[in-house]
Deep mutational scan, measured.
Amino acid sequence: VKVFRALYTFEPRTPDELYFEEGDIIYITDMSDTNWWKGTSKGRTGLIPSNYVAEQ
């Protein structure tokens, strides 16, 4: 598990995607895809765009 911080707010387009706000901490559990990672924030899990976060 790696810890990342959201650089921007992300509004999901599908139920599989995770909503998060700029500054949120996201725990990444799967980075197997280059563009979409699986992450958890505020008790919810979903896909996030990798270019919206920076490693802490």
Rank of each mutant, 00 (worst) to 15 (best):
I48P: 02
D16T: 09
G43T: 04
T40P: 01
F20C: 03
T9Y: 06
G39L: 01
I26S: 00
S32A: 10
D33C: 06
I26M: 05
F10L: 05
W36I: 06
E21F: 07
Y19N: 07
S32Y: 08
T45G: 06
T45K: 10
D33L: 07
F4Q: 02
T9R: 11
W36P: 00
V1W: 12
A54F: 11
G39Y: 01
E17M: 12
T9M: 06
V53W: 03
E55M: 11
P49R: 06
T34Y: 09
R5G: 03
D30R: 03
F20H: 00
R44T: 06
T14V: 08
V3L: 12
W37R: 01
Y8R: 14
W37G: 01
K42E: 08
K2W: 12
N51W: 15
T29P: 01
S32K: 08
P12E: 02
I26A: 00
L7K: 08
A54H: 10
V53H: 02
E55S: 09
I26E: 00
E17R: 05
R13G: 10
P15N: 10
L47N: 07
G43C: 07
Y27I: 13
G46Y: 02
Y52W: 07
R5Q: 11
F10H: 13
I26D: 00
G39W: 03
D30K: 03
A54N: 07
Q56S: 14
I26L: 13
Y52V: 08
R13C: 13
D24Y: 04
T40F: 15
I48V: 15
K42A: 10
T9G: 08
I26P: 00
E17P: 00
D33T: 07
R5M: 13
P49K: 06
K38M: 15
Y27L: 12
T45S: 14
V1N: 11
Y19H: 09
K2P: 09
N35T: 13
A6N: 02
W36A: 02
W37C: 02
T9H: 08
Y52D: 03
T40I: 14
N51V: 08
D16S: 10
Y52H: 07
T34E: 15
P49G: 03
P12G: 07
E55A: 13
S41E: 02
T14M: 10
F10M: 05
T45H: 12
S32G: 08
V3Q: 10
D33Q: 08
T14N: 14
I28V: 14
E55W: 10
T45F: 13
T34H: 13
P15D: 12
T9F: 05
E22L: 10
Y19L: 05
G39V: 02
L7E: 03
